[in-house]
Every structure is written in C-alpha cells, then in structure tokens.
Design a protein around this nucleic acid. Structure first.
Lengths: 176, 176
DNA sequence: TTATTACATGTAAACAATTACATGTCAAGT
DNA sequence: ACTTGACATGTAATTGTTTACATGTAATAA
C-alpha cells in the first residue's frame, strides 16, 4: 500500500492544518489543480488509505457528516522524507502545448485563433495570480513560500501569454 | 472505441509523414514527451486501435519486422476535426511544481537546494531547445510551426530558470 | 565468434485518474 | 412549505498510464 504523489500532497496540506475531505477538495480545485488536478472521488479513498497507513488520523467531526483529518507524527515524517529523499518526476502533461505541434494542420487564420485563445486564457490566469500575490503580506515569513509558489505561476502565465502573442505575429508576418 | 489525446497525437505525427511504431516512440521520447509522456507499450496498442477504426493504414513493412503506418483520409479529417472543433483540456500536471507548495516543510537551506536543482534542470533544457532552434531554418515555411513550438519551450524553461534563481535569492534574503 | 547495442513489436499486470452514480444535510430565500 | 445551492461523503465503472514481462533481428566492434 504505497503512497503516491496525491497521497503526499494531501499529507502536505494536512501538515499545515487539519482539514475535512471537502476542504482538501476545494484547496485542490482552487490552487493545487493548476499543477496536480484531482477529483473528490480520488481524494476520499486516498484519505482512507492514509488513515489505514497511520499517516493521518481523524481529529474530529462536524456538521453534515464532515470529518476532520490531521497528519500524525508518522505522516509528517513521511511527507518530509518524500520532499527530501525522493526525486520528483520530470513529467509534465499539457494537451494545450501538445496541440501546438499540430498547428500546421490548420490554415494560418485558424492557428492564429487557437493561439489568441490560449493567450487569453494565460492572461486571465495571470491576472488572477497577480491579484492573489497582491494580498499576500510580503513581510510575513509564514507566507514567503506561498509567495514563491504564486510567483512561479505568474512567471509561467506571463511567459506563455507573451509567447502566444509573439506566435500570432510570427504567423501574420509569413502570411503577408 | 473513442480516440483520445494520444490517438490524435499519433494521427498528427502520421499526418506529417508515415512512420513505424518505433519511430513514433522515438519522436515522443525526443520531443513530444515534454508535453505528453508516453511509452511504447501504450503506442503499439493505440496504433492497432487507430487501424481498426480506419484512421491509419499499414503502408509498408521493413527490416526486423517493422511496420510503417500512414494516416488515411479519414484519419486526416479526424485529426483536423480534433484541432478545430474540440477544446483542449486545461489540465497541467507537474510534480516539480506541486512540491513547491510544500517547500515550507523543509529547512531553508534544503528548500534552496531543491530550487537550485530544478533551476539547473530548466537551464539544461533551455540550452538544448536553443540548440535545436538554432538549426531550424527560419525562412522555411514548413518549419515555421516547429519554430513556434520550440519557442514555447524556450520561453517556458527560461521563465522557470529565472524564477528558481529569484526564489533562491528570496529565501537567502529572509534568512539574513 | 561472440558480446553489445540499437532496432523493433508486442502483452499483462498494476496503478492512477476521470466520469458517472448515489445519497444525504443545512441554510437562505421565496 | 418549498426550492435552490452550497456543503459533505462516498462507490462503481471506465479509461488512461506505467512498469514489468517477453521475444526476436540486424549491425558493429572486440
């Protein structure tokens, strides 16, 4: 019963503060899904697995049948070991970028439309990330790592938005 | 027997030129794996599926039992339809970036080590992509889209390498 | 001639992720 | 009283992905 990436991510969130499965699901949807998409249908069974492995424990229960989980000492140990001693997979999977390799299949105007659309999505996310970054107090040491994580998002979205604009122009250039 | 993203990617490659399963595997390993990792054990059954669906046909056979496949008219139609009429999944999955959210679990010096290491990997790939971009003749319209795809890689790796360096300094700042 | 490496294709088992199904609670507004 | 929406947790079936198993060919170098 080995713990995978999702299990370690849940452990990492529960190391910060105790949460219900629902709260974990929302945290994934709101921020972690940008780097590791997951559904509640995967989270709940994974929590059961982590509990069975003694890495988390149910620390309480609230309204509407909600259950609060907290990381155990073993769980904290395990997530630290994962961060320290294991090599992250290099693999990145993104259908949006995959399709760029096949843009030559479309007439130039449709390729441009595709690029403008993905540029727009990158700009949207960039705006959202910048708004989040703006409200993180930069002097609080607790939030410093959070600021570093969001900065990665900002730079990524910004670079990809610029790239998309550049690519549209590049296509326009050769069409003339 | 619906065709998924991998099937469309194979169709896209075969739309460009006929290939053996082995060649397709190598193309994935060398360039497409950066956006859509796949193993030969998934490629061969997928080719069989595409052939059964009439989207590709075996166009020849060579040494060592190799089989060459080519896209059929229906296959070309299908991959164009996919590019034009379907919305790409927004999902991106990257364990490297996921771990950034849990960097606070490590002492600052270990977090810095992690960031330096991933910065190094980004710089490595950046150098490789730049070398590839340098040998693409920029005036050949055939390669224009290839140049656009590699530019995305260059900007991505460059942005992430810069981010990693910035993050290391950010941690150093607060440690003092 | 023999060992190694790259070429070449497959299948099976295990694991991970998505989609669909299924149920029920509680609060707020109408 | 009723409806809607957010809260809350699960399971089942399907699909996608990885790892391990399995086999054989051709070229090159020692």
């Amino acid at each position: 019963m080995a713990i995978g990436t999702l299990g370690h991510a849940l452990l990492g969130l529960l190391a910060q503060r105790e949460c219900t499965g629902y709260e974990l699901t929302r945290t994934f949807d709101e921020s972690l899904a940008h780097v590791w998409p997951t559904k509640h249908s995967q989270i709940y069974p994974e929590l059961a697995k982590l509990q069975a492995a003694g890495l988390i424990r149910q620390s309480g229960s609230g309204a509407r049948g909600s259950k609060t989980y907290a990381a155990t000492a073993e769980g904290l140990e395990e997530v630290r070991r994962w961060m320290r001693d294991t090599i992250p997979s290099e693999s990145v999977r993104t259908e949006r970028m995959l399709r760029v390799f096949f843009l030559w299949l479309l007439p130039p105007n449709e390729a441009s439309t595709y690029l403008r659309e993905i540029g727009g999505r990158h700009r949207e996310r960039l705006a959202r990330y910048e708004a989040i970054a703006a409200i993180i107090p930069s002097d609080d040491p607790e939030d410093r790592m959070g600021r570093i994580a969001i900065e990665a998002g900002i730079r990524y979205e910004s670079a990809m938005a610029d790239w998309a604009s550049w690519a549209v122009e590049e296509i326009a250039k050769s069409a003339s």
